[in-house]
């Protein structure tokens, strides 16, 4: 907690924090970019999942779907990381000190791992695992969206910086 508080203090003093808080419209604009990138992840994961559930084992078109959509999801996750970091910089005392933020980070790591495993399984043509991996990654990404929205409502830890 102390390291985190020091980090938040340092972050608040950076030029990036000064820039994103310099105008009232910048934070909502970054949030819009964040939401659009979420849309890209959600539609990619939905498409991969749908095709995985529909496809009979051995059908070839799931690997095409993965080749088509996985890069979209990964690029969008990169945009989410950057826009998310800017949002944290806009209010360093907020997200970092709320449990739901760390739940979200854990869910993202799990969701990315499962999405990667899904891609790898497709390459090795282990198609039997598709449904499990697809359903699991959809649930995890839905959890990420919920946890993300919930950062706005959760209480901060006692003693968190204002």
């Amino acid at each position: 907690m102390e390291i985190l508080a020091d980090f938040a203090t340092w972050l608040a003093a950076t030029p990036v924090a000064a820039l994103v808080t310099s105008r009232g419209w910048i934070v909502p604009a970054i949030q819009v970019v964040h939401i659009i990138a979420i849309a890209a992840v959600v539609i990619s994961v939905a498409q991969i999942n749908r095709n995985a559930v529909r496809t009979r084992a051995g059908a070839p078109d799931i690997s095409l779907t993965l080749r088509q959509w996985l890069p979209v999801a990964y690029i969008a996750v990169g945009i989410l990381a950057v826009s998310g970091a800017l949002l944290i910089a806009s209010e360093p005392g907020r997200a970092l000190f709320r449990t739901v933020f760390w739940v979200k980070i854990a869910l993202i790591i799990a969701a990315l791992a499962l999405t990667r495993a899904h891609g790898a399984a497709a390459l090795r043509a282990r198609l039997g695992w598709h449904r499990v991996l697809a359903a699991g990654s959809v649930l995890l990404w839905v959890g990420v969206v919920f946890a993300g929205r919930w950062i706005a409502y959760a209480d901060g830890w006692p003693g968190a910086p204002a």
Binding site: I35, A39, A40, V42, I43, S44, A46, V142, V145, F146
Partner: peptide
Amino acid sequence: LALTLVFG
């Protein structure tokens, strides 16, 4: 979640 699916 719904609007991201609509927009996407």
